Amino acid sequence: MITVEGVTRVRGRTRILHEVGFTARPGRVTGFLGPNGAGKTSTLRVLLGLDRPQAGRALIDGRRYAELERPLTVAGALLDGSGAHRSRTARAHLRWVAASNGLPKGRVDEVLELVGLSADAGKRAGRYSLGMSRRLGLATALLGDPPVLILDEPVNGLDPAGIRWMRTFLRERADQGRTVLLSSHLMGELAETADDVVIIDQGRVVSAGTLAEVVGDHPTLEDAFLARTASRGAAW
């Protein structure tokens, strides 16, 4: 489970997160929705220990990410890009990451097959398309077979078939009892994928609940979002 409690983050003189709080539960896909610049990635960076908040805390199964002894076996994350050096092959990158967490080499070929990159495993990461890079990043997140997945805009760069594959894959992970936190600015995609939705705008959570609760009486998730952010002057 993921628990974010009262997280405030200040950069310079700008407050980019304002007491952000929500929970992502096992067995469910939680969609973290907001326009570009709303604070989604900043929140995930705090959750993963990449940034330090001025107040509040973000926990994975009750612990800060930095406290996890073998983090890949607890939480897998996909942020910007694949994380691989351009000159490394996908297989070499994954083997290096696996070794850093004491994971068996055999797991590398398993995740390459899982994300559809087996045929391109010997290709250097710098030659990958954006969609292939996203798949490599997902493979890295899956190396430790973690119970928690944290994905920032995972469908960026994927073609329609890839988007359908990602949607099915995340649903399967949640159905296995895992926690899936998925950030996106694509409301239609989240409406097809998420069980729960957290809407963030200008660094503040403006709505959170099940998809049905957040949509309420509005025809679509997009209408619900606009209704909740109109008074704040959000630009979509």
Rank of each mutant, 00 (worst) to 15 (best):
Arg228Gln: 01
Ala224Pro: 01
Gly56Cys: 13
Val29Met: 06
Leu17Ala: 06
Gly39Ile: 11
Ala191Ser: 13
Gly209Tyr: 09
Gly116Asn: 05
Leu94Cys: 06
Glu189Ser: 03
Leu117Asn: 04
Val180His: 15
Arg91Leu: 13
Gly177Met: 08
Ala234Leu: 02
Asp201Glu: 05
Gly137Ser: 06
Ala161Lys: 02
Ala212Val: 07
Ala139Asp: 05
Arg63Phe: 15
Glu69Val: 10
Ala125Glu: 01
Arg95Gly: 08
Glu67Pro: 05
Asp51Tyr: 14
Arg86Leu: 10
Gln54Ser: 04
Leu47Tyr: 12
Leu72Glu: 07
Ala99Cys: 01
Gln176Trp: 06
Gln202Tyr: 04
Val198Thr: 15
Arg167Ala: 14
Val206Leu: 00
Ala227Ile: 00
Ile150Ala: 11
Ser100Glu: 09
Leu72Phe: 08
Gly21Gln: 13
Thr229His: 04
Ala227Arg: 02
Lys105Glu: 09
Leu182His: 11
Val197Leu: 14
Leu68Gly: 06
Val4Met: 01
Gly12Ile: 04
Ala66Leu: 15
Ala99Pro: 08
Thr23Cys: 14
Val20Gln: 12
Ala194Gln: 13
Ala212Arg: 10
Leu79Lys: 00
Arg28Thr: 08
Val155Leu: 04
Gly209Asn: 00
Gly27Met: 10
Glu113Ile: 01
Ala92Asn: 04
Arg178His: 05
His93Ile: 01
Val4Pro: 07
Thr168Asp: 12
Arg232Trp: 05
Thr89Ser: 09
Asp223Ala: 00
Leu151Trp: 11
Ile16Asp: 08
Val74Leu: 00
Gly76Arg: 04
Ser82Phe: 14
Pro160Tyr: 09
Ser42Gly: 01
Lys40Ala: 09
Gly21Ser: 15
Gly137Asp: 03
His93Lys: 08
Pro71Val: 05
Leu149Tyr: 11
Ser42Lys: 00
Arg167Met: 10
Trp96Phe: 15
Ala139Asn: 05
Arg178Gln: 07
Val115Pro: 01
Val74Glu: 11
Arg88Asn: 05
Asp120Arg: 11
Arg124Pro: 04
Trp96Asp: 14
Asp120Gly: 02
Leu44Asp: 14
Ser129His: 08
Ala92Lys: 07
Asp51Lys: 03
Ser87His: 10
Ser82Glu: 03
Arg70Gln: 09
Ala125Met: 07
Leu48Asp: 08
Thr229Trp: 02
Met187Trp: 12
Arg173Gln: 15
Ala66Tyr: 10
Pro104Met: 09
Met132Tyr: 13
Ala208Arg: 08
Val198Lys: 14
Leu158Val: 01
Val97Pro: 08
Leu142Ala: 06
Gly131Lys: 09
Ala77His: 03
Phe32Arg: 07
Val7Tyr: 11
Gly62Cys: 13
Pro26Ala: 08
Leu47Met: 10
Gly116Thr: 02
Ala224Glu: 00
Leu142Ser: 10
Val205Gln: 00
Leu186Lys: 01
Arg25Gln: 11
Ser231Gly: 01
Leu117Trp: 03
Glu153His: 12
Arg11Ala: 09
Leu182Ser: 06
Ala98Asn: 00
Leu138Glu: 05
Leu117Gln: 11
Ser231Asn: 02
Val4Thr: 06
Ala75Tyr: 15
Lys123Val: 13
Val115Phe: 02
Ala55Gly: 08
Lys123Trp: 12
Thr30Phe: 11
Leu181Val: 12
Leu151Arg: 12
Pro104Gln: 01
Thr193Leu: 15
Leu72Trp: 02
Leu151Pro: 00
Pro53Ser: 12
Met166Thr: 07
Gly162Phe: 13
